[in-house]
């Protein structure tokens, strides 16, 4: 337990993502540690989120607490499992210094930061759950905490990606391993004089990752619902699988716009 606490503290302080290490495409942390920290953080927040199921007047049950303790970490980790091949492809396409395992570690660091931050909000969520009966308020509060922790972890990820594309401090003249074949022209040096913009690459990778992870994550959240447990409904581990997050969103938006 103390080990997990220390690991979470190191994670938040960025000890495993030093700029020097990232510049040479290295992350000095074990995947297992990141998984353990992330899963524990997610389980803590999930338990707090599921408390609403215990407190609601009808169909009160502890099962919602247990279900959410599993579902919150699963939401993030299963999303990564589905999206990782394409996330890695976009990273390699942008000629990232991070190889396969290091890319996985970086993404796990961002997810673990997100889940540990969520866990830090767990006492607040638990307190409000015990002091309110409004389901809508709890939905909004949870959305705010997910958005806040998500935004911070995205900032951490963005900063790390920019460091990955910086030249190594010790060897700023290191060249790419790529050895372009000779062009038909005589002035090859001039041909290769324009290096692709290094600052644009991390931004592009970040946006691609954000789009793919966001797309899969939204749908994963949709199929893992309910997380809070609406009053008046009996406990369900999962709702019936149909439609998608986006269809439900646009349907709700259309209803709102036509005033129904």
């Amino acid at each position: 337990m103390l080990g997990l606490w220390t690991a979470a503290d190191k994670l938040l302080r960025g000890k495993w993502m030093s700029r020097e290490d990232l510049r040479v495409g290295r992350l000095e942390v074990r995947t297992g540690v990141l998984l353990a920290v992330g899963a524990t953080g997610g389980a803590l927040y999930g338990a707090a989120m599921g408390l609403f199921g215990v407190m609601r007047p009808a169909h009160a049950t502890w099962k919602q607490v247990l279900a959410d303790a599993g579902k919150v970490p699963l939401l993030f980790l299963l999303t990564l499992a589905v999206a990782f091949p394409s996330l890695y492809a976009f990273s390699a396409l942008a000629d990232s210094k991070l190889r396969f395992l290091e890319t996985l570690k970086l993404l796990l660091v961002a997810i673990a930061v997100n889940l540990v931050l969520l866990a830090s909000f767990a006492p607040v969520t638990a307190f409000f759950t015990m002091s309110t009966t409004s389901y809508s308020f709890m939905v909004l509060l949870n959305c705010v905490f997910f958005a806040l922790s998500g935004a911070i972890s995205l900032a951490v990820l963005s900063r790390a990606l920019h460091a990955v594309y910086e030249p190594p401090a010790s060897n700023s003249t290191a060249s790419s391993s790529a050895a372009p074949a000779k062009l038909a022209h005589d002035d090859d040096k001039r041909l290769h004089s324009r290096e692709p913009s290094r600052s644009a690459r991390p931004r592009r990778v970040f946006y691609a990752w954000f789009a793919i992870y966001g797309l899969v994550g939204s749908q994963m959240g949709w199929i893992l619902r309910p997380f809070i447990g609406a009053p008046g409904l009996e406990f369900q581990l999962f709702r019936e699988r149909q439609g998608s997050f986006f269809e439900a969103f646009f349907e709700a938006l259309a209803k709102f716009l036509v005033g129904r």
């Binding site: 999206a83 091949p85 793919i212 994963m220 949709w222 439609g243 998608s244």
Partner: peptide, 23 residues
Amino acid sequence: AVVLASLAPVVVFFHASGVSYRG
């Protein structure tokens, strides 16, 4: 083609999660 292949798990996931034909 390679990026499309890397996106195949995303497609399968959406199909398995009950998305509509239009979706």
